[in-house]
C-alpha cells in the first residue's frame, strides 16, 4: 500500500528541519496550533503538497483527514504549487458588485490560465478570494502582499507588465 503521499523523501530536509524547529518552539498543546503550523509550512515550501500535510498530521498527532479538512477549508492554503506572484482577486460582495468578475476574467485572459492554476512560466497563480476587508477600495486585487484598489479590467495589463518587467530586470 505504498503510495506517493507517504513518500516524505521528496520534501526538502533543510526546510523540514526548520518546520520541526518551529513546531517545537510552540507552547502548550501543539494540536491547537494547526493553522499556525500550516501557515509556516506553506511559507517554507510555497504550498502544501499531500505528503507535507501528512507530515504535519503525524508531527501534531492529528489525523490526516483533519489536516486536509483544514487545508481545503481555507482558500489561503494551496495544495498545488503557486507562482512567484500570487494574484488574488477579491470576490467579496462589495468587489463583486463593482465588477471584480470582469477583473478576474481579464487576468485569466492575459495569463491564458484559469483560476487556481499556475502560468506556464511558473511566475503567476490566480486565485479568487473572499472579502479581504478592503471594501472601500473595491474592486481589489492583490499581488502577494501588495494591494491594488479600484482596479479596472484595463489596469490589469499594466500590473502584469510591471511584474514581468521585474523579472526581466532580475535576469
Amino acid at each position: 500500500m505504498k503510495n506517493k503521499i507517504m513518500d516524505m523523501s521528496t520534501l526538502d530536509k533543510r526546510l523540514l528541519k526548520e518546520l520541526d524547529d518551529y513546531i517545537n518552539s510552540l507552547d502548550g498543546d501543539k494540536q491547537e496550533h494547526l493553522i499556525l503550523v500550516l501557515h509556516k509550512a506553506q511559507e517554507l515550501f510555497g504550498y502544501l503538497p499531500q505528503n507535507l500535510q501528512l507530515y504535519v498530521a503525524r508531527k501534531l498527532n492529528l489525523s490526516s483527514a483533519r489536516v486536509n479538512g483544514v487545508v481545503t477549508f481555507y482558500s489561503f492554503f494551496n495544495e498545488e504549487p503557486v507562482g512567484k506572484y500570487r494574484i488574488s482577486v477579491c470576490m467579496g460582495t462589495a468587489c463583486f458588485v463593482k465588477g471584480a468578475d470582469k477583473v478576474l476574467e481579464r487576468v485569466q485572459d492575459l495569463l491564458k490560465i484559469q483560476k487556481d492554476r499556475i502560468s506556464e512560466d511558473g511566475l503567476f497563480t490566480i486565485n479568487d478570494v473572499r472579502c479581504i476587508g478592503a471594501c472601500g477600495l473595491a474592486p481589489v486585487l492583490t499581488v502577494n502582499d501588495k494591494v491594488y484598489g479600484k482596479v479596472k479590467p484595463n489596469d490589469v495589463d499594466d500590473i502584469i507588465r510591471y511584474y514581468r518587467g521585474l523579472e526581466n530586470e532580475n535576469s
Binding site: 498530521a57 489525523s63 483527514a65 479538512g69 477549508f73
Partner: peptide, 30 residues
C-alpha cells in the same frame, strides 16, 4: 473521530463543494 479515534473521515472543502471524505479523497482501502 470522537468515539473510535480512527480519524479516517473529515469534512473537506466548504460551501456546496464540501463533502465528508477521507484525507485527499483517498480510496477507503488506502
Amino acid at each position: 473521530n470522537d468515539i473510535q479515534t480512527v480519524g479516517v473521515l473529515s469534512p473537506l472543502k466548504r460551501g456546496f463543494d464540501s463533502v465528508v471524505a477521507t484525507a485527499f479523497h483517498l480510496d477507503l482501502a488506502q
